[in-house]
Simulated assay, not measured.
Amino acid sequence: MTVLVTGSRGRVGSALIPLLLGKGIDVRTASAAPGKPVPPRGATAVRCDLRDPATFPAALDGADAVFLYAEPSQIEAFVQEAEAAGVQHIVLLSSSSVIGPGAPESAIALSHLTVEQALAVSSIETTALRPGAFASNALQWKWALQSSGTIDLPYPGSYSDPIHERDIAEAAYAALTEPALRGAAYHLTGPESLTFSQQIAAVEAAAGRTVPFRRVTPEAWKESVGPHLPAAAADALLGYWAASDGVPTTVTHHVESLTGHPARTFATWAAENASAFTGTPGSPGTA
């Protein structure tokens, strides 16, 4: 079997590749700039820019399955080329935002829904993985700590279900290698529903330092992230955080049903990434 892994430099894709190689599967690591970084031994680097249909034919030629990131801009062209290449199965990295309240109005949900809908009307069997918040989202806090020494949060009491990226990768591996798991949609979560302040406490315990934060208005937060986050995405995040402020999220057991083990805790992730939070303001850090 040959599997094309898009987003191969991402946290999930890079964790999935060695699992597939360990199974003896032919792996193509796809990115807009193949070979940077050098793919693991046994994998073949190919150019596949999900925004550039000209890169699709060569990347998909001979592929049996695809691990697909949810890039909507050229999804119809990608599906058409995958069908022509004879791809039999796509495992899509979608988002739990597509099943949340107000999904059609959310910019984050809409991009994932667009891809899910394009795949739903194709001839290719599709398995949708719908994770909630990535535990690695917390790495964004290190920049604030290094620059100002504190984290700005508009909703410290907002709940999420942070999931370890390796659990997502292992779920994708199971879906790609176990035929009985194909064709379904799986809502993936971590094992706990935690507020931002509880996640910060876990980071403090792991890093052995105080991680100060302050509550700011949604407007102030949106202005502060404006240089690097589109307004629509910022509004979608603020809407989600407001809706889940003081409201625990639903936790599922789909990680365990797919992988055979319970989902890793956020404390486990924090311990593995503690070095990212041990720097002082103005220091380069060690992410």
Rank of each mutant, 00 (worst) to 15 (best):
Q199Y: 07
G35I: 07
V87E: 10
V211G: 09
Q117V: 00
F196K: 02
S257I: 02
V211P: 10
T249S: 15
A171C: 12
V211C: 06
R28G: 00
A118S: 10
V247P: 00
T55C: 00
T189H: 09
A202M: 15
T150Y: 10
A103W: 09
D64Q: 10
A202H: 13
P281F: 08
T195Y: 07
T114Q: 11
S14A: 13
C48G: 00
A174P: 03
T150K: 11
A231M: 10
S160D: 14
H89Y: 10
A271Q: 15
S275H: 13
L139R: 05
L19G: 02
A144H: 13
F67I: 12
R11N: 15
D49Y: 01
S96D: 15
T252Q: 06
S197C: 01
P53S: 07
G132P: 09
Q140W: 13
D167V: 08
G102V: 12
A270T: 07
P227I: 03
P179G: 04
S147M: 04
S275Y: 07
H164M: 10
A77K: 11
A77N: 13
A271G: 14
F266R: 01
V121F: 01
A169L: 02
P37Y: 07
V216R: 04
L153I: 04
Y155E: 03
Y173V: 02
H253Q: 14
P37T: 06
Q117Y: 04
A15L: 14
D167Y: 01
L194W: 01
A172L: 05
D26P: 02
A206I: 03
R182T: 05
P262F: 12
F196E: 14
T127P: 10
H164W: 09
P39L: 09
A180L: 12
T6M: 01
G246W: 11
L176P: 06
S96H: 04
P162A: 06
P162T: 06
G183W: 13
F78G: 08
L68I: 03
T44G: 09
T126K: 04
G279F: 06
R9C: 14
A54I: 07
L93A: 00
S97C: 02
L145A: 03
W269V: 05
